[in-house]
Design a protein around this nucleic acid. Structure first.
Lengths: 244, 244
DNA sequence: TTCGATGTGTGATTCGAGTCACCAAGAAGG
DNA sequence: CCTTCTTGGTGACTCGAATCACACATCGAA
């Protein structure tokens, strides 16, 4: 349900269905729902309500009981751990079409990380009970969920490997490659500050700066107005391997 | 199907069913199948064949096309990444009742890691097509699979966090706690060499040795005939937190 | 029992990367 | 437009942990 300002609006059926239609269109672009037919997607779209978050707003906190799944409709959020001393570890940066919160939905345990908006964001919220009921109608979603969890597990294992096997410049190179556009000469899909990168790979901001400087000097990447472009992909890949 | 030596045996129906019965009994102790009724478990048990592996035998290799799920029936295996320079990262050590290989089964992608027997081991093998068909009969397994993947994802994220936030002794403490028995004074459930621990936490063997020496000195753990017992759990927990 | 093999303990040295301390350069907002 | 905030760059110093180099302890198997 959508509200403008603080006034709740009553929709005429036609206005209503336009809105649901829009959400359905959006959801069918999300991999999790891609295999479903129109009707099934609509089923999910109807259970959805959109919630807006300002930049830096906390969306979920580690330890909270979690009973909702979120799909990013606009904006950007980061998934992170916060240590007692305040240091932050960024586990993931999510953009439009990504989703989070499924772990608590599946196993009923508390949230495993914090999620904070890095940009003003609109999130579609699906509550647990609604979601479960709907999954029983459309078991394909269960499959899609497993595929997504598999992807993340592979990614997490890869991250563990590179934390152990690579030096800081190697880890920076890997992050750049993971966020690279399709071909050489394309800028990164996301704008990552050195600070953000450092929190993703467990390094200091300064060391990331030095690594980036090294890459520019060697002609591996070029940076214009803080937008990073990969010039020599092969060179970066070489740098992202454990050195013998 | 079971074979002794190289001679395939023909079973009488009764012999056969004893064997299947045994496997069913075993499978129903595995969390993945725990929610199923006898008949459903039997369905899976019948699709199973046991394969023996010698110590150090390679069970699956990273990059292989994967089309089977393995359940450890006896022995122990390790899941690991191997860098080009030969260094090994141990992602997990699996014992009786644990399983691996589901990622490739779910998403059809190549194996994401190597699996090697650390002890002579017996593995129950379930081929992809059989497994999928059976899952359609028993959708509860799909749910169990998601719960298991969630558990691993939480664990992997925790590992990433501790690699970034903790020093080596902190990471050692964390591993000890994760493998601890129920109460203080109980020995670890698995025997881990310093070498193995070092490969799990991305440290050198020597540094792990020194950390263990420190823990013994401070009375946090005691070691007798290479069996580690946790004496002061609270102390270890304190050591496994990021220090302010 | 004796011999490999496998696991552990400890010093000395080296090195990658964190920390501290600034300064410069873009963005962003009044 | 000029201030303010956020981001990036670089040197100097310090420190945790890897590496190197051995010696010692345990364990199985011949």
């Amino acid at each position: 349900m959508v509200t403008f300002g603080t006034t709740p609006l009553r929709f005429t059926p036609s206005t209503m269905s336009v809105s649901i239609e829009r959400i359905s269109d959006f959801l069918s672009t999300v991999p999790l729902f891609r295999e479903l037919d129109r009707t099934a997607v609509r089923g999910f779209a109807e259970l959805t309500r959109e919630q807006k978050f300002a930049k830096n707003a906390v969306i979920v906190s580690e330890g909270d009981p979690g009973d909702a799944l979120f799909v990013v409709r606009s904006g950007e959020v980061k998934v992170l751990l916060i240590a007692e001393d305040g240091r932050e570890v960024i586990l993931d940066v999510l953009g439009i079409g990504d989703h989070f919160g499924e772990l608590s939905l599946i196993d009923g345990r508390p949230r495993s990380a914090h999620v904070v908006a890095t940009q003003p964001s609109g999130l579609l919220v699906l509550r647990r009970a609604d979601f479960r009921r709907q999954v029983e109608q459309a078991p394909l979603v269960a499959w899609g969920l497993m595929v997504e969890l598999s992807r993340r597990l592979r990614q997490a294992d890869g991250t563990i490997g590179s934390l152990i096997l690579l030096d800081v410049p190697g880890r920076v190179a890997k992050v750049l490659l993971e966020h690279a556009g399709p071909g050489d000469g394309t800028p990164l899909v996301k704008q990552l500050t050195h600070q953000t990168i450092s929190q993703m790979i467990g390094a200091s901001r300064e060391t990331v700066s030095r690594a980036m400087a090294e890459f520019q000097e060697k002609g591996l990447v070029s940076v214009q107005r803080r937008i990073v472009t990969i010039v020599d992909r092969a060179g970066l890949i070489a740098r992202s391997r454990p050195k013998l």
